[in-house]
Nucleic acid binder design. Sequence first.
DNA 1: CCATAACCTGACCAACCGGTCAATGAATAT
DNA 2: ATATTCATTGACCGGTTGGTCAGGTTATGG
Lengths: 210, 210
Amino acid sequence: MPETARPSKREETRRETERAILIAAEKVFAEAGFGGATMQLIADMAGLPKANLHYYFPTKEALYRRVVEDIFEIWLRAAEALDTADCPVRGIGAYIDAKMEISRRHPFGSKVWASEVMHGAPVIQDYLETTLREWTEGRAQAIRRWIADGRMRPVDPHHLLYMLWATTQHYADFGHQIETLNDGRPLSDEEWAAATESVKEIILRGIGAI
Amino acid sequence: MPETARPSKREETRRETERAILIAAEKVFAEAGFGGATMQLIADMAGLPKANLHYYFPTKEALYRRVVEDIFEIWLRAAEALDTADCPVRGIGAYIDAKMEISRRHPFGSKVWASEVMHGAPVIQDYLETTLREWTEGRAQAIRRWIADGRMRPVDPHHLLYMLWATTQHYADFGHQIETLNDGRPLSDEEWAAATESVKEIILRGIGAI
DNA sequence: CCATAACCTGACCAACCGGTCAATGAATAT
DNA sequence: ATATTCATTGACCGGTTGGTCAGGTTATGG
């Protein structure tokens, strides 16, 4: 019988409370921006007194940083889809699938990320200069390989990546606009699938991979 | 000799001051968000005492609304490029040119717009439901016509428009990220041209217009 | 030149926000 | 049982913010 460290009641409560705070914070930061968000509102949404927030996260900035870091990790994890395949159709196709899924499941996170970058990345500038830059260069190399192998047309890898990011994240960041243009209704399952197919079709055909 | 209403000194000063305020406000709102922006900072950047701001714009919200409306107008005006041509290559090509130019010339405005929509369009929701919806439907019809005429492949017009918006605005809204990945340097003239060409090439080919 | 209206501004205020802290309650180890 | 550590909370505080206002300045029309 394995001695799996059973979580003490304290640990468990702590994890649950922290989770509740992070979920509330993600939503409030996304909807109001860093400057517009208030610790009181986050506390109310998490069902806690404000002082308790400062026990878990010393400052508003620390809480915000944690939210952004969590998003960044989800965002990077989805990028693995690009590596598992050896042809652009499967690789980029899977990447678009993954990113569209994130836009659907984590719209608040995507908005917080967008807001952070739009404001000059005051909190995650170091991530941009290290992790993101390395990741981007690696993926650009993979794309150049595909081009050299004649599996797609010669397009600038960076601009292709920007297009992938822009197009997929648009469905989260501008979701409100899309919903308004969709007669005020959120996209249904079928409409999400159609959106994903449209994006894949146009881009994969546009780079000559189909 | 035409009696062109020569502007009185008052009118002229008023227009100049208002312009200075709007330029400062656009920048501050873009960099700090609505919540993070302060009237004091806008006043300092415009070289005015704060109280003077409230003489021109009664509230922070009124000033913000004006900034967003001005952007919306620029944004709509660029859309005329889509109408002047009768084939997708020239129409969509010109539209991409125009939108990329706006991303370059009005990055702050684009960010304010993005931020407004991301936060649920509290100020310009009515514009989304009226002007933008009508414009979108009209353009979707034009695209359907092109498809019916066999000038491009059958793609969902809405998703194509979203891709156009997303891709072009990305160069403004995520300009900081792009700059970081470009070794910290802003895109040069040639790089902007290359970006525009990349976007046009992939999308026009992706919809089968080339 | 004068009266009037438009414009400008320093000083001020109430409201709110992030953060602190001392006191209390609850879980854990001995 | 009880000492000790961890977790919770209401009350509070200094600083900042959007907005006001009375009084001064400048342009304009007669």
